[in-house]
Each structure stands twice: as C-alpha cells, then as structure tokens.
C-alpha cells in the first residue's frame, strides 16, 4: 500500500464517520425534545456534514480518479463505507443519542487535537477548524451527560442504558492497521493509543461525575475499517442516497 492509498483510506474513515453521524443527527430535525435542542442537534449535524464535505473533497483529490465529495458520499455502497460503527447506530431515545454523541465527540476532540500537527497541510488545516467546532459539541453533550446522569431515576437509567448499548462499539475507535502504520511513519496521523489514553481518562471522569457506571462489556464489535457494518447502515444510505441516484446530475 502506498502512502497515497493509505491517506485516501484514512480520509474516508474520518469523512465517512462525520457524514454518517451528521446524517443520523439530522434525523432529529423536527423531533427534538425541546425547540432549542432541536436547533442544537441540527447545528451539530450541519457541522459534521460540512466537515465531511472537506474531508471527502480532499479524499477525492488524493485518490486522483475524478471523484468529488458528492460522488464519494452518494455513489458508494455499504461495504465501501469506512465510518465507525458507533456513528451509524440509530438515535434511539434522546439519552441514547447523547450517550453516542458523548463517546464519539470525546474521541474526535482528542483525535483532531493530534491531527492539528499533521505533516499533511490540508489535514492539519481541517483539524484546526474542526477541533474548534467539536469543542462546542463536546461541551453540549457533556452538559447533558451530567444533567441526565445526575438527574432523575428515569433519566439516569435511560442514559446508562444508552452507554451500555453503545459501549461495545468504542474499542474499534482505537484499532490500528496497515493504513495507520504507514501514515504514523510519515507523521501524518497520530498513534491512536495516545488518543485512547486521553479518551479513557476524560470518559471515566465524566461518567463518574455524572454518577453513572462504566459499562461492563466483554464483547467488542469491530469491522468498520474493512467495510463490515451493522444492518443499520444500509437503510441509512438508502435514504440518504435515494434522490441523488434517482435523478443523476440533477441541479437546482
């Protein structure tokens, strides 16, 4: 695998995760528990989709086969998608969405912090920009973690259930393969073990302060890096890609 191929693959992993979680969040539009929260979730969705646009546009350039961000987003099938499994999990109730966002936002926060010093100028520029945005997202989800965890019996239980359900998808965030090895050597991406230390520390702190428990999950679900997804991604893509595929090249 060449550096260029590894970079393309890595950009898909980042870009697809942003795109899919952005799309999931957009499903909350008009369904938020309160108006302000509805607006907040959609603002965050917009940031993620914007971030995905930059990453996938760059992925297309790196690949050099003439695919732009739209071609990559709308014309790839499930098995070609590289988003983390946690990003495609259904929204569930609001507490479940908060649990998902908290685990993912914390990961992206520390990952982008490292990517800011990437030797690839474009990746570094996108990371600087995205890190500023993710900081706001994380602040938002962290507040809800405290409010629900240390809230009523009902809110505590729902958030704990959300964490329990999603915990098995967190370990693959830190898996590394040939792609990572090649790019780490070039100084383009960080060693994910470093990100893992920061992530674990922060997640444990917040969970403890929110009077919640770290889930005890032995089983770890993996597969996104090889394009093996849960059943949910296919349905999501069908909805997301439908218009683009039904009306190829349509413009307004």
């Amino acid at each position: 695998m060449t550096v260029q191929e590894a970079k393309f693959e890595y950009l898909l992993r980042l870009g697809d995760s942003s795109l899919i979680i952005g799309h999931r969040l957009s499903e909350w539009c008009g369904h938020g528990p309160i108006l302000e929260e509805d607006i907040a979730l959609i603002n965050i969705a917009l940031d993620f989709v914007g971030n995905a646009t930059s990453l996938l546009a760059y992925a297309g350039q790196v690949e050099g086969k003439g695919r732009d961000e739209d071609a990559l987003a709308y014309l790839r099938d499930e098995r070609e998608y590289r988003n983390l499994l946690i990003t495609e999990q259904p929204n569930g109730d609001f507490a479940n969405t908060i649990a998902r966002q908290f685990l993912f936002d914390t990961y992206m926060y520390f990952l982008y912090e490292e990517l800011k010093s990437s030797k690839d100028e474009t990746i570094s520029a996108i990371a600087v920009k995205s890190h500023k945005e993710i900081t706001y997202h994380l602040r938002h989800t962290t507040e809800w973690m405290y409010r629900f965890g240390d809230g009523t019996v009902e809110s505590h239980e729902r958030l704990q259930n959300g964490l329990n359900d999603l915990w098995m998808y967190t370990s693959e965030m830190f898996d590394m393969d040939e792609v990572d090895a090649i790019l780490i050597k070039e100084g383009i991406v960080p060693d994910l073990n470093k990100v893992k230390v920061s992530w674990e520390k922060r997640v444990h702190e917040v969970i403890a302060e929110a009077t919640l428990q770290i889930p005890v999950t032995v089983f770890k679900q993996k597969g996104s890096k090889e394009g093996k997804h849960s059943e949910h991604l296919g349905f999501l893509l069908a909805e997301m890609q439908y218009v683009h595929r039904a009306h190829p090249g349509a413009k307004w």
């Binding site: 302000e36 607006i39 907040a40 603002n43 940031d47 938002h140």
Partner: peptide
C-alpha cells in the same frame, strides 16, 4: 438558553 442558535455561529 442554548449554545446553538439561529445559525451555526450563534448561541441563544
């Protein structure tokens, strides 16, 4: 009221 307002760059 909310960290996210009428546009991405504003809070309420």
């Amino acid at each position: 009221i909310s960290q996210f307002g009428s546009t991405a760059c504003k809070a309420l």
